[in-house]
Nucleic acid binder design. Structure first.
Length: 216
DNA sequence: GCGCCGATTGGCT
DNA sequence: GCCAATCGGCGCC
């Protein structure tokens, strides 16, 4: 897949000035273009999660509590919020809704499009499906670090609307990954037909239990 | 000041 | 499936 320059259009701030849930769903199929280190890399978004800020116990903006780390989360819509995960990885979000809402969309997986050799070099892996299939992985592949935190969406990395979804794309919703609080909120959005998602849709707890009981 | 925890990943059983 | 790596935020003393 390549980016059609005629159709490519940078997403306006108004795109992000809506609920994180809506933005997370509508970002599927959009393209992230990074120019980190002067090298161009790009990927198509295939997985996102919404974090709702004040009312969301899993959000870094829970109860609108601000710290030096999450400062960017309370900035204007379209601001990048990048944080360190487990002291090792970077994860990147785009601020949504309104100033001070603390809500954002986490980018969880991309389908690599441009600069794939650069991604391989940065990631130290060959397999294409391991390049951007996770929030930490995609940051490494695109060269995203704390440098991007608090900057406006267009400053370095940008998001462009790439037509829309393709005919083969299947939009699915599931619970969010890797959290313990509000773990049952259906705020993960993914193109479930893509091989580049971080994980498949989890089985429901009930059927998972049944599978375990049956030795599956 | 001290200890625990996490929006992850990669390697091993 | 289990576990370590590694660090900032947070609760508690």
């Amino acid at each position: 897949m390549t980016i059609d320059k005629r159709a490519a259009k940078v997403l306006p701030v108004s795109f992000f000035a809506r609920s994180a849930e809506i933005v997370a769903r509508e970002l599927l199929g959009a393209v992230v273009v990074s120019r980190s280190g002067g090298v161009r890399t790009a990927g198509r978004i295939v997985e996102t999660e919404a974090y709702l800020g004040g009312p969301d116990p899993a959000s870094h903006g829970y109860q609108l509590r601000q710290t030096p780390r999450n400062r960017a989360l309370f900035g204007p819509p379209g601001t990048w919020y990048v944080y360190r995960s487990y002291g090792i990885h970077w994860c990147t979000n785009l601020v949504c809704q309104s100033n001070g809402s603390g809500s954002a969309v986490l980018l969880r997986a991309l389908e690599p499009m441009d600069g794939i050799e650069t991604m391989r070099h940065r990631r130290g892996v060959i397999a294409e499906r391991l390049l951007c299939s996770g929030p930490g992985r995609l940051c490494q592949a695109l060269g995203i670090t704390r440098d991007l935190d608090g900057t406006a969406m267009r400053v370095s990395e940008v998001l462009v609307r790439e037509g829309a979804l393709e005919r083969a794309d299947v939009v699915s919703v599931s619970t969010r990954i890797g959290i313990t609080k509000a773990a049952d909120w259906p705020l993960r959005f993914l193109l479930s037909s893509s091989v580049h998602v971080s994980r498949p849709i989890p089985r429901s707890p009930a059927s998972s239990k049944a599978m375990k009981k049956r030795g599956g």
